[in-house]
């Protein structure tokens, strides 16, 4: 068990709802869910049976204290951030943000499914964007394809070759960004200092060991 998971288990004992209310982004809205299921019916990825537990089920499981089942679930990682559930919820529960919040909290605790591809994308995207202040699309794609090693990466890159070539021809993919080109902010140092402070303040406010 990770240190943070131990710390939080001890602090919240069996009150998982309180834990989510305090720790997950927008988690204090969970209790507003009235189990109508409009969110599930509105979710585009739900059509592909991607969700073991659709949103309203996750909310009820939180209230029922099913901590491991919720945090270890792969469901919320299927969110495409389309905000369909968000605008249709009759109780105005910000479901999209809660899905993100649950996923983030599960990830911090080390409870999220291992090798979850969207979790990997989230980390890769944020690290990429904050390194220089702006996204380097070529490096982002490279990191994604080569996450499972060289051979798998070559295979994936080959499969995507026609897509990439089309973009290069249309001048919408610049291979030079892979070798030190690419766009950057001027005050990278300031951005890094500001983000370090923000992480510190957020950990403090949530009572998480930094």
């Amino acid at each position: 068990m990770s240190d943070m998971n131990q710390q939080m288990t001890a602090r919240y004992k069996n009150n998982f709802l309180k834990e989510i209310e305090e720790q997950a982004e927008m988690g204090d809205w969970v209790k507003m869910c009235m189990q109508c299921g409009v969110c599930s019916g509105s979710c585009p990825t739900n059509f592909h049976s991607a969700w073991d537990h659709p949103p309203q089920e996750l909310f009820m499981m939180i209230r029922a204290g099913k901590r491991d089942e919720v945090l270890e679930s792969g469901s919320m990682w299927n969110c495409v951030s389309c905000y369909n559930c968000y605008v249709r919820c009759p109780r105005k529960v910000p479901i999209t943000h809660i899905m993100h919040g649950l996923a983030e909290y599960a990830y911090r605790l080390g409870k999220a499914p291992k090798q979850q591809p969207t979790q990997f994308l989230s980390k890769t995207f944020w690290d990429n964007a904050t390194k220089t202040g702006r996204v380097n699309e070529v490096k982002l794609t490279q990191t994604l394809y080569f996450k499972n090693g060289l051979m798998d990466g070559i295979k994936q890159a080959m499969a995507m070759q026609s897509v990439a070539l089309g973009l290069v021809k249309a001048k919408r993919l610049n291979p030079m960004e892979a070798v030190g080109g690419g766009h950057k902010c001027k005050d990278i140092k300031g951005i890094h200092a500001m983000l370090a402070k923000a992480r510190e303040l957020e950990a403090q406010r949530k009572g998480r060991a930094a």
């Binding site: 982004e25 951030s81 993100h100 919040g101 996923a103 983030e104 990830y107 999220a112 969207t118 979790q119 994308l121 989230s122 980390k123 995207f125 944020w126 690290d127 964007a129 904050t130 202040g133 702006r134 996204v135 902010c185 001027k186 005050d187 951005i191 500001m194 983000l195 923000a198 992480r199 303040l201 957020e202 406010r205």
Partner: peptide, 23 residues
């Protein structure tokens, strides 16, 4: 001048809330 990335929706798991707002 010198604008930076918004973090987009997808950064949610790694960014947390405050760092994203600060960006």
């Amino acid at each position: 001048p010198d604008w930076n990335c918004c973090g987009a929706s997808i950064s949610y798991a790694e960014s947390g809330e405050l760092p994203r707002l600060v960006m």
